[in-house]
Simulated assay, not measured.
Amino acid sequence: MNVTPIDHIRISDVVANLARAQDEKDWERFQGLFADRVTLDLTGQPGEPAEELTAPEMTAKARAIIGGFACTHHASSNLLIEVSGATARCRAHMVAYHHVPTPGVDHLTMRGYWRLDLVDANQRWAIRRWAIVRTAPWEGNPNLYDIAREGASGDLRDAP
């Protein structure tokens, strides 16, 4: 599985843009990173089955959660990339910091990795499967996702 320098750069850009799109709440950029159909795999989180979504559904789901955070910071490292023809796999170590102003503990940090399966779609790599795997205990308030989701619901009413 020979990875060309161009494919390595293009796939690394997908990882960087996935982190950036979430941190900047740039939902157009976010949606553009995915194939028409994508599998979101959160089975590394207890009780979360993998689900098949369209790119717009994936974007709406992310927006419903990430949109409620005052800020996030996703930092990736140690990318391992394999390419086989028009498909690729990438594993990126991830530290994701999430913040919502709230009494008490107002942050949550996840440590683990993203496992991305990609497909070459018209000379660009598009994500067709995104697995988020937590490899260490949460640091901070594990209820922050619920708090963010409640906050994002008001933002979505105003969305175009």
Rank of each mutant, 00 (worst) to 15 (best):
residue 3 V to K: 00
residue 117 D to V: 15
residue 9 I to Y: 03
residue 21 A to R: 01
residue 16 A to N: 11
residue 19 A to L: 02
residue 92 A to Q: 04
residue 97 Y to I: 07
residue 20 R to C: 03
residue 58 M to C: 04
residue 35 A to Y: 09
residue 139 E to Y: 04
residue 103 P to A: 15
residue 128 R to D: 14
residue 48 E to Q: 15
residue 128 R to L: 06
residue 10 R to D: 15
residue 66 I to P: 03
residue 82 E to A: 11
residue 121 A to E: 14
residue 87 T to W: 08
residue 156 L to D: 10
residue 76 S to R: 02
residue 59 T to D: 00
residue 71 C to S: 14
residue 14 V to T: 07
residue 78 N to D: 12
residue 113 Y to G: 01
residue 105 V to G: 12
residue 13 D to I: 07
residue 56 P to G: 08
residue 30 F to T: 09
residue 156 L to C: 11
residue 34 F to T: 05
residue 36 D to P: 14
residue 21 A to W: 01
residue 11 I to V: 13
residue 1 M to P: 05
residue 24 E to N: 15
residue 28 E to Q: 14
residue 46 P to S: 11
residue 63 R to C: 12
residue 155 D to S: 13
residue 133 V to H: 09
residue 77 S to Q: 08
residue 133 V to L: 03
residue 91 R to S: 08
residue 158 D to L: 11
residue 62 A to L: 04
residue 27 W to A: 00
residue 136 A to G: 05
residue 57 E to C: 10
residue 113 Y to R: 01
residue 147 I to E: 07
residue 30 F to E: 07
residue 37 R to G: 04
residue 68 G to V: 04
residue 53 L to H: 09
residue 129 R to N: 11
residue 78 N to I: 12
residue 14 V to K: 02
residue 23 D to E: 06
residue 52 E to G: 14
residue 134 R to W: 10
residue 42 L to K: 02
residue 62 A to M: 01
residue 51 E to K: 15
residue 142 P to D: 12
residue 159 A to F: 09
residue 27 W to G: 00
residue 160 P to G: 07
residue 96 A to E: 09
residue 80 L to W: 12
residue 146 D to N: 07
residue 139 E to D: 13
residue 29 R to N: 11
residue 87 T to S: 09
residue 110 M to V: 13
residue 95 V to Y: 02
residue 63 R to F: 01
residue 74 H to P: 04
residue 2 N to V: 15
residue 107 H to W: 12
residue 79 L to G: 00
residue 81 I to A: 02
residue 117 D to C: 15
residue 60 A to G: 04
residue 100 V to L: 01
residue 133 V to C: 08
residue 63 R to T: 11
residue 122 N to K: 13
residue 30 F to S: 06
residue 160 P to S: 11
